[in-house]
Design a protein around this nucleic acid. Structure first.
Lengths: 218, 218
DNA sequence: TTATCCCAAAATGTCGACAAACGACCATGG
DNA sequence: CCATGGTCGTTTGTCGACATTTTGGGATAA
């Protein structure tokens, strides 16, 4: 019984590499060499390969035949697209919530998350994670597997860019209040209002992102 | 120089399996056993594994650790979601076309496609492919990689269900006229009108699909 | 100096074999 | 009769080795 339960070996390796990407330990465009990781983890190349495939399905790396696999990078316009589509998915989810029924448990979870967020206003990274979880809960309320998976994939890609936490960070206080408002609107079943608030928020992020790109504060 | 140029071996195998899925040779839920395909193609299991991963990336199969890989199936509501999201992407693409510039070449291609469609009204399968290509051209006009890739993935999944060609088939004549109208609207830069026509068309497909499910004409 | 060719090192692709896990069947016991 | 447990064939997971391809550098010639 040498093996672990929760995840298969390739999944574990994929998780670790994911973390490396998220923390900036691996930068976009960087090459991931199988044999390096193989010797690092004391395995053969097969599980590493498998892990890289997993990351490719999540869109975090790109596998180019006979060239290798590199950490995926995104252009400015691609990031815009990712944010835009993700927002659209969230609005779709919002529409479907109106017909679903078990909002209660999700709302409770969201209130809990916002409470945690209130206690984490100082820690941008942590706040970003809670924020992510908050929105994921909205998505789950729609009870749509397809939307959920797509949203998760897009979020993971965006998270890998380490841009969001920074962008949100400048306006944490405002964001925090917005989330409280969203819960309030959902409780009162004012779905359209909640939807447009989400849209405004996302648009603001996109706008800030574009400004960010135009003035490289470096 | 024994190898082929255009595609790597795993890609070729993936293409063949894709065809098997699209033609119904492999049914949803069916298990794909690596060693079978290995001996069939005269290779070892490694390239097969790679091919299966490619298919997983495209969402055509599902890999379950230590269980194997099965052809992915979709519930009715999941199919609805796929159609809905795909339509949303198409509307997003439409919005962006307004700011792009090189519409001309795409419009020409679309006119060519519609012409071919006119000559293929009798062949549902072929018509569905041309139809698919038509919409893909609209997507390309948006010049967004992200939208393009997502749209392609969703379309491939829907295509694998062999439902669309059947659904469209009943209304080919109407569909044909609609496509002509779309080109006309795009030429006159009436993007909003084109967008809502697309929405109507897609909604009609979804509605028909749901009726289809409620009355199993079998 | 620069361009080109060639070669060696490194990295990915493929292979066959073995290990571990899963699933089905059968036997056994209640 | 049903539930339990073991056994065995099948299938996936992992390994190490070899083949093929790419890459980078250095020698040579213009």
């Amino acid at each position: 019984m040498t093996n672990v339960f929760h995840h298969s070996l390739p999944q574990q390796i994929a998780d670790k590499i994911t973390k490396q990407i998220m923390t900036g330990d691996l930068m976009p465009g960087e090459k991931i060499i199988e044999s390096n990781y193989a010797s690092e983890y004391g395995t053969s190349r097969a599980p590493i390969r498998e892990a890289l495939y997993l990351l490719a399905t999540e869109g975090l790396v790109e596998r180019i035949p006979r060239k290798g696999t590199i950490v995926k990078g995104f252009s400015q316009s691609e990031i815009n697209d990712l944010l835009d589509i993700r927002m659209t998915l969230e609005k779709m989810a919002m529409k479907r919530i109106q017909s679903a029924s078990d909002h209660q448990s999700c709302l409770i979870k969201m209130e809990d998350l916002v409470e945690q967020m209130g206690a984490t206003l100082h820690d941008e990274k942590q706040y970003a994670l809670l924020n992510q979880e908050f929105h994921m809960t909205i998505i789950r309320m729609s009870q749509s597997n397809v939307i959920h998976e797509l949203y998760q994939k897009l979020s993971k890609q965006l998270l890998s860019l380490q841009l969001l936490s920074f962008l949100e960070g400048e306006h944490i206080q405002k964001s925090y209040e917005e989330h409280q408002t969203i819960i309030h609107l959902l409780k009162n079943k004012q779905f359209d209002e909640a939807s447009s608030l989400l849209e405004d928020h996302n648009q603001a992020v996109i706008t800030r992102l574009n400004l960010q790109f135009k003035s490289p504060t470096k």
